[in-house]
Design a binder for these strands. Structure first.
Lengths: 332, 332
DNA sequence: AAAAGCAATGTAACCGGTTACATTAAGGTT
DNA sequence: AACCTTAATGTAACCGGTTACATTGCTTTT
């Protein structure tokens, strides 16, 4: 394989000169530069980036820990990450963790073994919390989307509590008073915040919290389907359901219709995320739009700032309530 | 940072012995091994894998070129790739190409610059076709899912022609004779094969091909929505529509209902891929199930075989027609 | 007992770049 | 003309592992 020494030989200069001609063209004479470039061309020389990286101790790779790539919201976040990383000359090492903490820890350790420069964690878990890592060293990481309360690093998130409150207020404004909620995984701070927002709206409207209206889920259509089954089986069934993800909302609508009920006539349904399918469901889904790609882009920008030693502040992203046909006035 | 020399010093042995104690424990004496392991532990030593990779000229990274990660079918394929790669000790460098050939070429060149060992291309394009690459060298690559006719590498694909024929035969068996088709991008061999299968079924049933029933699309819900608009505006509108992807089928169903028509009563709809939402649409979608994760796993296995110098054969994956409620007998 | 064989370990070259430092040559100053 | 400055280039150390080859010391063979 052609290396820098072959090129140097071909051009009749030293390897240092070749390196300089390519990296800092301004400090070699035009004539030499010309010679070197010709030799590079002739030899079909491409620098062995592994050697470059090894020398500089930078890989220009970022590890991304994603709970599940099958969720279209995360797919969009990853799109944003990938785009921004590419622009800045970084590669993206993807890890679909499925919430497996051992796997997250293992991938995060790519940073300590120098196969990656930093980590973007999209789940509320500190992959460096394992004993294997030196507690002292703050390893380069950004926690985005689903954020730890005591994250050991900068974070990018949504004001989930405010967003959930806004959806719930929308349903209350439509006259609903029995509002079910299909939640995310129990231990997630994201789920807790959204439930708090839901409760904020209820208590502001003077509606008592009914625990039976709260169903756990895991963000999949199946979970939404099953939770809806529970909710419509209640003796006093809800007239509206707020789902913590569009995927669950789609599952819930499917079950509601299967029971012979209509959306929104019998039950209004609201989701969260505004995935691509949200405007193509029947009826189109009322939901909270999150700037998914921007989440990814910002996380990359912040991580690179961290890697470059700059000070980085936490970021809160904006959201929008999109009112579509799946929510309508309550008909008693 | 602690390196192998520090460990050697601490253990009172040479660096070579440390290296051997870790890599081939059987060729050092038990006593020495013990000493070395203790020193490793004490120093908190982790090998710098960048150095290892540099030395061995293997990165244990695979580049994956995916047309769009936002498509849930590809998200599943990537899951499979990631899982298999992880098991075999490889990382996955993801590139969401959006069909941009320059980007694909750029990422593929990571192989020539030794930042990755091989490429899995999920689109019908040879990223090494650029002049920048030496034509002679067959670079390690697998072409999966959407496969080139003259792929310069092993391939994993579906028998798209047979699958499309089976869907179309299913519709014909239900009595449909005017069957619309919402296709993929014009130049894709995958689209061509599926159209051929569609035509095979038609001609076997003695139905003449009507060009007006063929609409191009790009696999997104929006494309399906728009194509359906065109189809239902025809003076003699189709009684069934075969979509080349579930995402388009979902868009199409949305437009059909918007027009006040019912699925399947007025128009049957069939998709392709069996994405997670396919069973939660209203009505649930008849479709072709593809083993998406298996595609990914097989591609990884094949690529690693290639990297290890083994001979690799092309692979054809199985499919299944899933008959759901979106297709029903034709009512004239 | 000398020779041969072998296990365990050490020495140092090596991978392919980058870069601190040394050297050379050319131009400018007094 | 001697001295200084600066630009251009060369030399070689360096990053952190791996491994071919050399060395040492012990055991076995004849």
């Amino acid at each position: 394989m052609t290396n820098i020494r072959k090129v140097a030989e071909l051009a009749g200069v030293s390897v240092a000169t070749v390196s300089r001609a390519l990296k800092s063209p301004d400090i070699v004479s035009p004539a030499t530069r010309e010679k070197v470039l010709k030799a590079v061309d002739q030899a079909g020389y491409k620098p062995n980036l592994m050697a470059v990286q090894f020398r500089s101790q930078r890989t220009y790779n970022l590890v991304v820990l994603v709970p599940t790539i099958a969720n279209t919201f995360f797919a969009r976040v990853i799109s944003g990450i990938q785009e921004a990383a590419q622009e800045r000359g970084y590669g993206v090492l993807l890890c679909n963790t499925l919430g497996d903490e051992a796997m997250e820890t293992q991938y995060a350790s790519l940073v300590t073994t120098r196969q990656a420069d930093g980590v973007i964690q999209l789940r509320a878990f500190n992959p460096f919390s394992d004993n294997a890592f030196p507690a002292a060293a703050a390893l380069p990481m950004i926690n985005a989307c689903e954020v730890l309360d005591d994250a050991p690093c900068p974070t990018v998130k949504l004001d989930n509590r405010a967003a959930a409150r806004e959806v719930t207020e929308h349903l209350i404004a439509l006259g609903h008073r029995r509002i079910g909620m299909i939640k995310g995984p129990r231990r997630s701070p994201l789920t807790r915040d959204r439930q708090l927002g839901y409760q904020d709206a209820l208590s502001a409207a003077g509606i008592a919290l009914d625990e039976r209206l709260l169903c756990p889920g895991d963000f999949t259509p199946l979970a939404g389907y099953q939770a809806a089954e529970t909710l419509i089986a209640l003796t006093e069934r809800p007239t509206a359901i707020f789902c913590e993800s569009d995927e669950m909302a789609i599952g819930a609508m499917s079950r509601i219709k299967e029971a012979g009920l209509r959306v929104p006539d019998d039950i209004s349904v609201a989701g969260f995320d505004d995935i691509a399918f949200a405007s193509y469901t029947d009826p189109p889904l009322t939901t909270i739009a999150q700037p998914a790609e921007a989440f990814g882009r910002e996380a990359v920008a912040m991580l690179i700032d961290v890697l470059e030693g700059q000070k980085v502040d936490n970021l809160v992203m904006p959201y929008t309530l999109l009112t579509r046909a799946s929510t309508a006035p309550c008909r008693p």
